[in-house]
Amino acid sequence: MPTQLQPAAPAREVTERLSSTPRGARLARRLARYHLDGWGIPYDSEPSNAAEVIVAELAANAVTHGRVPGRDFELRLTLHADTLRVEVSDTRAESRPPREPERPAPDGESGRGLVIVAALAAEWGVTERPVGKTVWAELALNVQPA
């Protein structure tokens, strides 16, 4: 009897537009944890904590370096199988992160965000948009969501 292939689990996706403010960045982090919990990745699990840090760093960069007054940033989370893709889009195309983040001076007060993202993510990068850019990171969850 031939083996029947099970269809792949459908991707789960959510997109949120948030104000380009520190409050919007905090909300992005909280929304990410909320949606992941709803997808079966519980609060305070290692994958949830790693995703929260990635979202926090990318959202903070969007509101700090990609902010255009009066324009929001966008958070998109896509869960497919055991990979979470985090995308944060802003409307400032001329302010692009470096391909390889440099380690900041030990006493530096900023510059650690992309170093942290690169350490946690399986891959990360930047893509162009018609207006602005999207910084994305993919996180291998090593769990099967419910």
Score class of each variant (00 low, 15 high):
Ala9Ser: 15
Ala9Val: 12
Ala11Met: 13
Ala11Phe: 10
Arg12Lys: 15
Val14Gly: 08
Arg17Ser: 14
Arg17Tyr: 06
Arg17Glu: 15
Leu18Ser: 08
Ser19Met: 11
Thr21Trp: 13
Thr21His: 14
Gly24Ser: 08
Leu27Ala: 12
Ala28Phe: 07
Arg29Met: 04
Arg30Lys: 08
Arg30Tyr: 07
Ala32Asp: 08
Ala32Glu: 07
Tyr34Leu: 12
Leu36Ile: 02
Leu36Gln: 05
Asp37Gln: 07
Gly38Pro: 09
Ile41Val: 15
Ile41Met: 00
Tyr43Ser: 03
Tyr43Val: 02
Tyr43Lys: 01
Tyr43His: 09
Ser45Glu: 01
Ser45Met: 00
Ser45Lys: 01
Glu46Phe: 07
Glu46Ser: 07
Ser48Glu: 04
Asn49Ser: 10
Asn49Lys: 11
Ala50Arg: 15
Ala51Gln: 10
Ala51Pro: 14
Glu52Ser: 15
Glu52Gln: 14
Val53Ala: 15
Val53Tyr: 05
Ile54Thr: 10
Ile54Val: 15
Val55Cys: 12
Ala56Thr: 14
Ala56Val: 01
Leu58Gly: 08
Ala62Glu: 04
Ala62Pro: 13
Arg67Met: 08
Val68Trp: 00
Arg71Tyr: 03
Asp72Lys: 06
Asp72Val: 00
Glu74His: 00
Arg76Ser: 09
Leu79Glu: 04
Asp82Glu: 14
Asp82Arg: 12
Leu84Lys: 10
Arg85Phe: 02
Arg85Met: 09
Glu87Gln: 13
Val88Cys: 06
Thr91Asp: 13
Thr91Arg: 13
Thr91Ala: 15
Thr91Val: 06
Glu94His: 13
Glu94Gly: 05
Glu94Tyr: 09
Ser95Leu: 05
Ser95Gln: 13
Ser95Gly: 00
Pro101Gly: 02
Pro101Ser: 02
Pro101Cys: 04
Asp107Met: 03
Asp107His: 10
Gly108Lys: 04
Glu109Asn: 08
Ser110Cys: 05
Arg112His: 12
Leu114Asp: 07
Val115Phe: 04
Leu120Val: 06
